[in-house]
Simulated scan of single mutants.
Amino acid sequence: MKEIMKNIKSTLVKLLAAVAIAFVAVVSVQTFTSNNSATQTVQAARKLSKREKAAKRWIAMRESSGSYTARNGACYGKYQLNIAYLHGDLSPKNQERTADNYVYGRYGSWVNAKRFWLAHHWY
């Protein structure tokens, strides 16, 4: 009986791990897809308010100390974006544009992204 329970527990743990990995993969693909297509032009002419600029600067300082060349695993640059989002263009201009598109597509504003960061220590 103990052996059967042990096998059941082991199977359940493996199943839960597989579900968690699948969930992370789906979220990653959705985030990449949503930030990669129609949102490319969202931020083109947007002027940021003082609050938005302050929140954006705050996040950049927490993520990379403001460095456009900071690297942490698959994350790169001032806003520590997944390097795939930058499509090989690591320039400051592309990092700014891509970060704005990501934030406005996912959170609606830099202020909301900062609020999320404060709750989760990532954005």
Rank of each mutant, 00 (worst) to 15 (best):
K6H: 12
Q95I: 01
I21W: 10
R71E: 13
W122F: 08
W117E: 07
G77T: 03
G73F: 11
K9Y: 10
Q30K: 14
I83C: 03
S34W: 02
N72H: 15
A38V: 11
G108E: 12
T98D: 02
R46G: 01
R51S: 15
L15R: 05
L86M: 14
A17F: 08
S91F: 03
A54H: 09
S49C: 09
L81A: 01
R57D: 13
W117Q: 05
N35K: 04
A119R: 15
K2D: 08
R57Y: 14
M61W: 09
A22E: 02
A20E: 08
K14H: 09
A18W: 00
N94T: 07
K93Y: 09
Y79Q: 06
S109H: 05
N36W: 03
A74G: 03
R57H: 14
W122Y: 14
S64D: 03
K56L: 10
A18R: 04
N82C: 03
W58L: 09
H120W: 01
I8D: 02
Q40C: 10
E52C: 05
A113K: 03
M1K: 11
A22G: 06
S34N: 11
T98R: 10
I21N: 10
A99P: 04
Y123E: 05
R51D: 15
K9G: 12
A17L: 14
Y85E: 08
A25T: 11
V13S: 12
A38H: 09
V13M: 13
A20K: 03
T69D: 13
W117A: 10
C75N: 13
N112L: 05
S28G: 15
L90Q: 09
H120M: 01
V42M: 14
R106I: 12
M1E: 12
T31N: 08
C75E: 07
A60W: 02
N94L: 04
A22W: 06
Y123W: 14
A55Y: 00
A119K: 14
R71V: 13
K2S: 11
Y68L: 01
E52I: 07
T41P: 00
Y123D: 02
K47Q: 15
Y85R: 08
D89H: 08
Y79N: 05
V27S: 11
I21Y: 11
N35T: 07
A60C: 09
L86R: 07
N82G: 08
K9W: 09
R115N: 07
S49L: 04
R115F: 01
A44F: 05
T11C: 12
S109K: 02
K56T: 02
C75H: 11
A44I: 10
Y104E: 00
A70K: 05
A74D: 13
Q40G: 06
I4F: 13
T11L: 15
G105C: 03
G105R: 04
A74E: 12
S67H: 12
T33V: 15
A70D: 02
A20D: 06
T69N: 14
T98L: 01
T98S: 03
A70H: 02
L16R: 07
K93W: 07
T69M: 10
A70L: 00
V26Q: 04
T11R: 15
A20V: 11
N7Q: 12
T41F: 03
A55P: 00
Y76C: 02
